[in-house]
Amino acid sequence: MLRLNNIYKKFNKNMADEKIIFENFSLHIKKGEFVVIIGGNGAGKSTLMNLISGSILPDKGEIFIDSQNVTNLHEYQRAKFIGRVFQDPLKGSAPNLTIEENLSLALLRDKKRSFSFGINKNNREFFRQELKKLELGIEDRLESKMGVLSGGQRQAVTLLMACLVKPKILLLDEHTAALDPKSSVKILELTEKIISEHHITALMITHNLDNARKFGSRIIMIENGGIKLDTLDKEINFDDLIKRLNITVNKI
């Protein structure tokens, strides 16, 4: 499904503060897996997400999605396969566009945009149905600006936007970290619901080990650009592991 082969990535190449993030890094994710990535700050988790989404390109190595080599595709070209939710709820939607305009943009993620109208009766009804599933009561506010929604609501809509066209891979980069505990739980439940309903392959970064255990079907720990742990065992005792490997993980 998703395959990263021998990835090399350095930042600030050939400079005094050169930082090697990945050296000969490989990862293979199977269809339908819900992979949770944990690791300390600066371990390379977000860089991994960015490499997959194409917002940064590797120095060396290859990335495959479903046997298609996407290594040299731009971020917007890979968007055909990838849905993405950012940590910052403000990053995933356009605040000055209406909710329906945002959704209509998401609906064309894998298509070519044309000069036909972005919103019509049919897709408006479809948006209303989909928003109803979020149970936030915003299905009647299609024409409100996105910017008036709360952070939690916006993140829920962003999640919907990322999955409106079923992605081959869903990237969740600490997407609940900026929310209050209640919204955070709600978004996580919603995430699980959408993922299991549509059988989406997903990658989620989190600092919360309980969530990692609860939601992940596979847990990967990254440290210094290497995979320190890769397990399907949900009963794993993190505390022991952290002590043993001398790793700092921020437990929330």
Partner: peptide
């Protein structure tokens, strides 16, 4: 319009 409002989002939604 979305490019002007939130460029990063537009790229993530497949916009050049």
């Amino acid at each position: 319009r979305a490019t002007g409002d939130n460029e990063q989002m537009m790229r993530a939604l497949g916009g050049n």
